[in-house]
Nucleic acid binder design. Structure first.
Lengths: 340, 340
DNA sequence: GTGAAAGCGCTAACAA
DNA sequence: TTGTTAGCGCTTTCAC
């Protein structure tokens, strides 16, 4: 049976010392109007009584929480957990707590959580839009409450006052296509994600423009518009390809997971990349370099992205006006696409 | 220029309606003493004025935050982010916020963060001990403040009043050894992690006991006591093995990452699992089934673990006294160890 | 250099 | 059924 000590407040310290609470408060803040002898005394007593400031009271008084909310589609996805890790690192350094919640890609859940985040616990929000979200107006409420918002990766510019940090998906996709071209590929297909999501839209645009610039005409069935981006989608696409008369010599998948499914399915049919079909993905998931063949992909610097998003948000909270950030992605060529 | 509306409080509603704040407060809480007409009126006005309750004020008043703190070594590790996902899910369902922080495996950081978590923002803490931690007495402070603590995976029973949820590492390891034995392996080595960490200690014990029960004598250099558990460690161990006169026919690695390093290094030397050496890991990381050969491992049900930890903690906060939980692990046999 | 008092937004005794 | 009041723990004007 551990005796729960009652929490000690500045009043307890004040009483013990026979001074007023405000003196204690000031001493603890190293206020100039307090004598050094008094300061020492107060600090020692605080230490001795195991005093911990109550941050909730502080928040209420100051109207500042030193906390940011993070809203992501899923916590347990390498990309997002890596971003969160970056956020936490930066936030911790600047004395901020991080409150996380996940939308599970659901629009309804996202609305609820934004509601909860408007209830005064956080000074700002970092979010990435759920795949189920088409109308982003629920994000506006934050601005109405004066809560700054940073969107990362899956962003929307339709939210007034929003700040964004993104990777240049267009450039990343463009480079993938260039690379496949350099490997001798000409019939380059693309598995695209839902087009209401910014990143997948930009990757498709990068693909299209690169193809055009390279003088390659995109056939009518060269682009697959996926509803989801799971491994099964990649498997299905390979099966579909096997039934085609005119097969592609490369596929650029908008996600590593889809590409992974494709590689697995290819193996099942005795096909190998890049010999039978060059394959590239996007996101540089950790498994990319462990699988066989290793997977060509695009690094998004997710950890850095998180750090930048947090910095941006906290700077904004501190009254600055940070500019949007676009991170330059990096093409990482691996076995799945390197013809020699 | 968006006009930041000033936040509306119950006083604003009260004023508008010409009633007192307490009436509004009660109406909003659906208190029985308020007439249904009044309730309707208050609720409509609240809606109209876009009122959001201030949860910070609520916390201060009630001395309850509806928030739990989560302290893990790393956010961006599949195991931990999966646990966190489970925690968030359960917490959200029960109306709790989740505050995350990471110790980066550092003892000092863990101390600091526990200090921060004692500052009244959370009603309870879920944590997994940093690898750098040998003395766990810093966890005691939480109990002193009446903040319940659940430790998961890497636990310590030396913390008074602590609750734990773990996977039965001993059993998991035991089964791995049994399985390798059934595959015909007799010279089964073990790569162990730092022994001050509960999970690695228990896995080693499971290994030792299984070997004994199977009548296999463990040679003096069969157990490698690793300081770290990274891929490099696995690579190094393979190189060491290659220099041995009497080689093992199987290695049980206490971590999938070490096993992964081993498989990669083996490939480099033209060796393949399980033909030349059967390999098994622990944790069932997602990449286990994608790599070649796929890796035999032990599933820990991390997502469930998170949910259970959160349930346990919140039950405790609600005044119940939950019992410790031990999750039964599951051996997942894959190519790396299946002789046929 | 220090204290008294107000107040952040809310709830809950106590009164009426 | 409703209003008044105190107070959660802290900071900060204002007065001394």
């Amino acid at each position: 049976m551990t005796s729960k000590k009652k929490k000690v407040s500045i009043y307890d310290i004040a009483q013990r010392l026979g001074v007023s609470a405000s003196t204690v408060s000031r001493a603890l803040q190293d206020h100039h109007s307090i004598g050094s002898e008094m300061k020492r005394l107060v600090r020692e007593t605080a230490e001795e009584m195991d005093y911990k400031p109550n941050r909730v009271a502080l928040s209420l008084k100051l109207g500042k929480n030193n906390a940011i909310g993070v809203l992501v589609p899923h916590i347990n996805r390498n990309f997002f957990s890596s971003v969160i890790e970056g956020i936490e690192q930066e936030a911790a350094e600047r004395g901020y707590d991080v409150l996380i919640c996940q939308s599970n890609e659901s629009y309804v859940r996202e609305c609820q959580l934004l509601g909860a985040l408007s209830q005064g616990k956080v000074d700002g929000v970092i979010a990435s839009v759920a795949a189920g979200t088409r109308d982003v107006s629920h994000f506006n409420r934050l601005a109405q409450y004066g809560i700054p918002l940073v969107l990362f990766d899956r962003v929307s510019t339709e939210v007034p006052g929003v700040m964004t940090v993104t990777v240049d998906d267009y450039r990343g996709a463009y480079r993938v296509v260039e690379h496949l071209y350099e490997q001798g590929c000409r019939r380059i297909f693309h598995y695209a994600g839902p087009q209401h999501v910014s990143v997948w839209k930009h990757r498709l645009e990068g693909y299209c423009d690169a193809m055009r610039d390279l003088g390659l005409k995109v056939g009518r069935d060269w682009i697959v518009y996926g509803e989801t981006i799971g491994r099964e989608d990649g498997e299905r696409m390979i099966r579909d390809i096997l039934r085609m008369r005119q097969k592609p010599d490369a596929v650029f998948f908008t996600s590593d997971f889809v590409a992974l499914g494709a590689l697995v399915e290819m193996k099942k049919h005795g096909l190998s990349a890049p010999r039978d079909l060059a394959v590239a993905g996007f996101a540089n998931e950790p498994f990319d370099e462990w699988i066989t063949p290793s997977l060509t992909s695009v690094e998004q610097y997710s950890y850095r992205m998180g750090g930048l998003a947090a910095k941006m948000l906290i700077d904004k909270i501190d009254g600055e006006t940070p500019a949007d950030i676009v991170i330059e992605p990096r093409l990482i060529v691996r076995e799945s696409s390197e013809k020699r």
